[in-house]
Design a protein around this nucleic acid. Structure first.
Lengths: 210, 210
DNA sequence: TAAAAAATGGTGCAAGTGCAACTTGTATAA
DNA sequence: TTATACAAGTTGCACTTGCACCATTTTTTA
């Protein structure tokens, strides 16, 4: 369940668009998405294409904060993109649906069943994202790299019940996710390896203590 | 807007309770809330009283993660409380409404207007909490205490548009919020003071660069 | 296919941080 | 009121980390 339009017919979606006065914008590959309305209170949905929320650090380093695929939602509240250091870049030709948050919350909307279905869908998606944010906070709260790594392992282990983890991204991405220096993270991984806690083969990390 | 029952009559609330098959639990002061259902997927609302989500660290230190007042919502997705290290403690005699998440998401609920109103209310509250989480993540992502402090100042400044910040909690709490060691944070605050960036009088921090 | 870019793996060093320990001040409770 | 607990403020020290820089391998792009 990650489709905000689940359980809605094309006709209902059309009516929903009208009710909420949505706008659809098109962007070319590598174009910045929605730079002009950064400070407005909106919720947006990727209708077609791919995009990335990136963070440009003062030294020019670029961090990928989130990948946006079809049906991904983002916006002022949902992603901390309301500042200059964050950009959303289309990775392909991309269509974005933009909803004004005030209009979305307009009380009389409740009369329309398609609106209620839509809001329930959004609710579920946001809840899921909320859980992910909480997981990350729990990791970021740890003060040391070793603790962060172990917290990450613990989390993945709890999800999969397996004693190994296939990294769904690169080690560099992992370092960004844990918000630590990449080489320092490698050093700590090596220590964990040397101390017999883990094994590493490419992107497979085996937890020997589980 | 932080009342999940806004725009609902007592009769509608009663019907809502029946529809969702809610349970109401009562807890005494200092009693742990919901220890038995920690691993179930629920959303809960404080109907009366006060409570705190606390984090018990392995060394016995206790960190207050969140204060829960009347109408606060919490739960499996909404607060990372699904593990042993987290507890919710009643600070007064407290009544808690518990909703099974599956039941909350049951599709036929959509037939009932009071349900749709309720879900819209929840949606708004969660969105607000989401924003707060994102703000915190943005701070926790910074690698150094100085950066975290400046990010925190920046955020508060953007909210209030003032060149000073009244801490809404103790310096100890601030250190927990930034997830850094308290004395190390003090050291850094002193450096910022010595370098003329800020002034500190009790809980008032003046930003001299704004 | 060749060239460029990015990921992986590693090291030395300086700077930053956590931690323990202590003092002083200020609420809170007996 | 006194005792107790907690917050504020400080310091030395050991350990951790970020950073710059390197070599090598893998992936992507032209």
């Amino acid at each position: 369940m990650n489709n905000p339009f689940a359980e809605l017919t094309p006709l209902q979606i059309h009516k929903l668009y009208q009710l909420l006065g949505v706008h659809i914008y098109k962007f070319h590959k590598n174009q910045e998405i929605l730079p002009t309305i950064k400070n407005e209170n909106i919720i947006a949905i990727i209708l077609e294409g791919l995009a990335q929320i990136i963070h440009v650090e003062y030294n020019g380093n670029i961090i990928i904060v989130e990948d946006l695929i079809k049906n991904s939602i983002f916006g002022t509240n949902i992603s901390a993109t309301s500042t200059e250091e964050y950009q959303i870049i289309a990775k392909q030709d991309t269509q974005v649906l933009v909803i004004d948050y005030q209009k979305l919350m307009y009380p009389t909307n409740l009369k329309y069943s398609y609106y209620n279905i839509f809001l329930k869908n959004l609710f579920e998606i946001i809840n899921l994202k909320f859980k992910e944010k909480n997981e990350r906070i729990k990791i970021l709260e740890k003060k040391q790299i070793r603790e962060k790594l172990l917290a990450y392992f613990e989390l993945e282990h709890k999800k999969s019940r397996l004693s190994y983890i296939y990294l769904p991204f690169t080690f560099r991405d992992l370092a960004d996710y844990l918000a630590v220096n990449r080489s320092a993270m490698f050093r700590e991984l090596k220590h964990l390896k040397d101390e017999g806690f883990i094994q590493i083969h490419d992107k497979k990390i085996t937890l020997l203590y589980k």
